[in-house]
Design a protein around this nucleic acid. Structure first.
Length: 976
RNA sequence: GCCGGGAUGGUGGAAUAGGUAGACACGCAAGACUUAAAAUCUUGUGAGAGCAAUCUCGUACGGGUUCGAUUCCCGUUCCUGGUACCA
């Protein structure tokens, strides 16, 4: 009697795969490659929950499918193991983050192995491993040694830039550099001191030190990213955060802005993700021009995308932060304007953002001259202008821009229409419309007007056409301990790279993981954190790299994870190429996915890899949300507000009411019996208090919801014994039930420890096995859709596996397959499944595949089929989804090698060919009859047959149909 | 606000070059087996009307195109993801 014993089977095959090295991938030029990758996980202390493996299961299915299709599959897994949580834990406990990280990785790996993924574990990488971050540091050094040449449109070496400086200075060099870079000649360069030269080069390097405004959190001693700041406080810990200027390393990702934009055309990603990246890069084509301030030597530079509306400018608006704004304030306006600046500056960024409706601003008293018509334009200060974008100044055209319109309307400024159209509904952009009231560009259309206007600016030397990007350079340092040290030391306060032979620069030990007393990053605590060169000993950089450093190139390291002489051998990266399938969440759209593309393009420019887009095809799986359960505690309140006095409160009973009663209390619709039950529970308590007081009369009853562990709730019914075990402090609590049961409330929320709604895959595997977990996660719905986790349907999937097993173990339960040829009908069932599976795989529609497996097995069971000719291919078919049971069946069928070495069954159309079709016959578009007819019938014969049918005749009521629509093999429709 | 995605039975979902709405599964109900329970199996299950055959309604809502619309077009509501005044 061989039952489906998943525990035994799964353990057996996981060991087999490990011992035989089944998933070891090696370069093989004779086979086509397939690189399947999951987004790099951070090994958190909470371990894996059921949401994590969703994407891994999908990529595993595709990987195994590709193996069956003859591909050489690279399917690795590793850990993005530097990160804040381990450091935070270290600060609290003093435990070295390396130890915590190691423990977490061990747990993750164990959990992943239990699910039976086809990972090549020999290729595992960890970003916190010095053998790995040696190469992260190496890439940083290459960036430091490069600049972006706009003529070559690629990164070139700093060495070649120096030789050009020596020959011709920098006037004719088109390269991406800081805005404040001065022009110099070859002889001036020659005259620069070493320090001046280095300072100049820093303005060109692809990674550079610069003063940037950052979110500084003094309590945490670190800089936070925008999404780590909530309402001016740190998300973690709630410490105050201020905007502060600091010296930070940055990456000149803006140099690649255009190529990052164009590269999107080449990759097969979902349109929303591409769109997010496009918006993030934010390319605007326009013009930059200078307005002279009247009676002053000062000028204001603005960027505009609508230079065609230059004659409609009736105001210039400056950001409150700009220094110029303060300088332009005249005596008469000083009081109001300065007060406004103070208020506007003090408003937090979030306030300014969320409060779009309120229009505010102040007049400076100064005027600027529009060079096109010499008109005087008032200069205002307005907080809708951002200091960080463009030039921090806007030429307002109220007639054709909504924000400008609202501003002008609010302050009673002139609104001058310069494009033909109606102003009835306020401003209108009028893109492409006819220009009017605009001097020499009147009667032109947008494109031509813009060209003419830019020509005018260039002639007068007061402006030019310009492309502006929204994207900023990326800050590359964190004042943290648990990250890669930068391979940089300082001499005369200028940064220099350490020698390549000294890589990796290993993270030093420190006594505490906190900033030093004088505010230096934690590395400031390290002893001997210096670099020794021939001419002396110099301090090393104290900041570390951000989380995205290590994850920006890991997909190359998987190709050659142990190499010590290069980050990855070129022959290997050439063979494996780009990732063919990348599965992960869409939350990385503008972070990881942009930085990885940037570094890949840079490495491509260096010539060390041959691809410039790392991820060819990407699928974004939807998050699995948690489903929280609630219990409702009765909360007696003293009438007229306030709670009872502390003494009474302390002994008030813990009473939980079932969901229905909670709803009635909230809706004030309790019936008498329920009221009495509650009252009695309380009375027995009150009797022990002062019997003189009518407590009940003083109380009003309310309820409050409390999260309860979803693992002690089944079908929303609370297991009372388990509840008491879960919360021993509430073991004496009383419960008011409905129909003898306690019903819990439920809500869909993010899966999180604090909400007690985390479901662990280990529990599911323990109860049903990994194959059931894999199938069920897929069966839940389309991969890309967000969905709450619930185990309501898991029994059906488990039953399916048992039925599958029983096909190979008919009757008595012993393994038995017949070598007799399969019937036509049996083959049809099989090939229907093959066809569906191939289609689903092409569409990444895994849920429908599981359904078709079920249909297939149901039909074969009905046919009592146990023919090898059908069951052998069936095992292969199922193997990507449920690999353990498939391997076991494959072995029982007499094979000694892994099922992954089998070939995917060839689909044969012949078995699906039908001779007959049951035509739905519709009268006026409604299905009224069915007719089983031969598919070989001509249209006229079908019509005859349909009209001859008694049921059809009944509906026609003897009349001839007005119109007859016949689609052979599909439908018959008669219009009366 | 702007840009995406979505809304189908009690539940998860299936079906779009426009062609039988609700596959598959859960749940529920009835029955079989069992001393009993679990497991398993069988049958039924969108709503309403009817003894029944059958009929009417039905894919968020309101229109439209069509012989025929869950699918295409226009408008509305709600949910959800991203983004934050980008000149």
């Amino acid at each position: 009697m061989a039952e489906y014993n998943f525990r035994e089977i799964e353990q057996k095959w996981q060991e087999f795969w490990k011992d035989k090295g089944t998933f070891k991938a090696e370069v093989d030029p004779n086979r086509p490659k397939f690189y399947s990758l999951d987004m790099f996980p951070y090994p958190s202390g909470a371990g894996l929950h059921v949401g994590h493996p969703l994407g891994y299961i999908a990529s595993d299915i595709v990987s195994r499918f590709k193996m069956l299709k003859g591909f050489n599959v690279l399917h690795p897994m590793g850990y993005d193991s530097f990160g804040l949580p381990a450091e935070q834990y270290a600060i609290q406990t003093g435990q070295h983050p390396a130890i915590t990280t190691e423990q977490n990785i061990t747990r993750y790996t164990e959990q992943l192995k239990n699910i039976g993924f086809a990972f090549d574990w020999d290729r595992e990488v960890r970003t916190s491993d010095p053998a790995y971050y040696k190469w992260t540091q190496w890439i940083f050094m290459q960036l430091f040694n490069s600049y972006y040449d706009q003529e070559a449109d690629k990164a070139l070496s700093i060495g070649s830039l120096i030789s050009r400086f020596e020959k011709e200075g920098n006037a004719s060099i088109k390269a991406v550099c800081d805005d404040d870079t001065p022009t110099f000649t070859a002889s001036e360069w020659d005259g620069f001191s070493e320090k001046e030269k280095q300072e100049m080069l820093l303005k060109y390097r692809l990674t550079f030190l610069a003063e940037t405004t950052v979110n500084w959190c003094a309590a945490l001693g670190t800089v936070l990213s925008n999404d780590e700041v909530k309402d001016g406080f740190s998300e973690r810990g709630g410490h105050p955060v201020e905007r502060k200027k600091m010296m930070q390393w940055s990456m000149r990702i803006t140099a690649y802005a255009d190529r990052l934009l164009q590269g999107l055309e080449k990759v097969d990603w979902s349109e929303p993700i591409k769109e997010m990246q496009r918006n993030w890069i934010g390319k605007s084509i326009g013009a930059e021009m200078v307005f002279q301030v009247k009676n002053s030597d000062k000028s204001i530079k603005v960027f505009t995308t609508r230079i065609d509306t230059i004659y409609g400018v009736t105001c210039l608006a400056l950001a409150p932060e700009s220094d110029l704004a303060a300088e332009l304030i005249t005596e008469e306006e000083r009081a109001t304007a300065e007060a406004y600046i103070k208020v506007a500056k003090n408003r937090s960024e979030r306030e300014r953002m969320s409060d779009v409706k309120t229009i505010s601003g102040a007049f400076t008293g100064s005027y600027a001259i529009n060079p096109f018509n010499d008109e005087e334009i008032p200069i205002w200060i307005a907080d809708y202008v951002l200091a960080g974008y463009g030039t921090g100044a806007v030429m307002a055209v109220p007639a054709h821009d909504e924000r400008d319109y609202n501003f002008a309307k609010h302050f009673g400024l002139e609104i001058r229409q310069v494009i033909e159209g109606s102003m009835e509904n306020g401003s209108f952009p009028g893109k492409g419309g006819l220009i009017i009231n605009s001097g020499f560009i009147s009667n032109l259309y947008m494109k031509e007007a813009m060209e003419k206007a830019i020509e005018f600016l260039e002639e007068k030397g007061i402006g030019k056409g310009k492309i502006q990007f929204r994207m900023r350079d990326a800050i590359f340092t964190r004042q943290r301990y648990w990250g890669e040290p930068l391979p940089v030391y300082f001499k005369d306060e200028l940064p220099y790279l350490i020698d390549e032979k000294d890589l990796p620069l290993v993270l030093p030990e420190v006594d505490k993981y906190l900033p030093t007393e004088d505010g230096e990053p934690p590395l400031g605590r390290a002893k001997d954190w210096t670099y020794k060169t021939a001419d002396g000993e110099y301090p090393l950089e104290l900041s570390t790299m951000p989380g995205w450093a290590g994850s920006s190139w890991y997909f190359f390291r998987y190709m050659d994870p142990k190499n010590d002489s290069v980050f990855a051998d070129k022959a290997k990266t050439d063979y494996w190429g780009a990732v063919d399938l990348y599965i992960g969440g869409s939350e990385h759209a503008t972070g990881h996915l942009l930085y990885s593309r940037f570094w890949t393009k840079f490495l491509y420019d260096l010539g060390v890899v041959s691809i410039d887009e790392p991820f060819q095809k990407m699928i974004n799986q939807g998050m699995i949300q948690g489903r929280s359960n609630f219990v409702y505690r009765l909360k007696p309140l003293l009438k007229g507000g306030g709670e009872g006095n502390p003494e009474e409160k302390a002994i008030l009973p813990m009473i939980f009411v079932s969901k229905g009663i909670h709803e009635k209390i909230q809706g004030k619709s309790l019936n008498e019996a329920e009221k009495t039950e509650i009252e009695l529970k309380f009375k027995s308590i009150f009797e022990k208090l002062n019997p003189q007081i009518d407590y009940w009369g003083l109380l009003k009853i309310d309820t409050s919801a409390m999260h309860v562990d979803v693992n002690i709730v089944h079908n929303d019914q609370l297991n009372l014994d388990k509840f008491k075990a879960w919360r021993p402090d509430l073991a004496d609590a009383e419960f008011i039930l409905e129909d003898g049961k306690y019903s819990c409330g439920a809500e869909v929320e993010k899966m999180s420890k604090s909400k007690y709604n985390v479901v662990n895959p280990d529990d599911i595997i323990e109860r049903y096995g990994a194959d059931t977990l894999r199938l069920y996660e897929m069966f839940l719905g389309p991969l890309e859709q967000f969905k709450p986790w619930n185990t309501n349907g898991i029994d059906g999937v488990f039953k399916f596996l048992k039925k599958l097993w029983n096909l190979y173990h008919p009757g008595s339960g012993d393994f038995a397959v017949s070598d007799a040829p399969a019937s036509k009908e049996e083959l049809k069932v099989l090939h229907k499944a093959i066809k569906k599976l191939e289609e689903d795989m092409a569409n990444f529609s895994f849920n429908t595949s599981v359904s078709s497996f079920m249909i297939c097995v149901n039909e074969l069971t009905a046919l009592k089929c146990n023919k090898r000719e059908v069951l052998e291919p069936l095992a292969i078919l199922v193997s990507p989804y449920a690999p353990h049971i498939a391997e076991e069946l494959w072995a029982l069928l007499g094979h000694s090698t892994s099922i992954t070495t089998a070939s995917f069954p060839e689909f044969n159309e012949e078995y699906l060919v039908e001779s007959n079709f049951e035509y739905p016959v519709m009268i006026n578009g409604k299905m009224r009859a069915k007719l089983n007819l031969s598919l070989s019938l001509a249209v006229s014969e079908i019509e005859q047959a349909a009209l001859a049918d008694a049921n059809v005749q009944k509906w026609l009521e003897g009349k001839a149909p007005k119109k007859v629509i016949i689609v052979p093999g599909k439908i018959v429709n008669l219009v009366v």
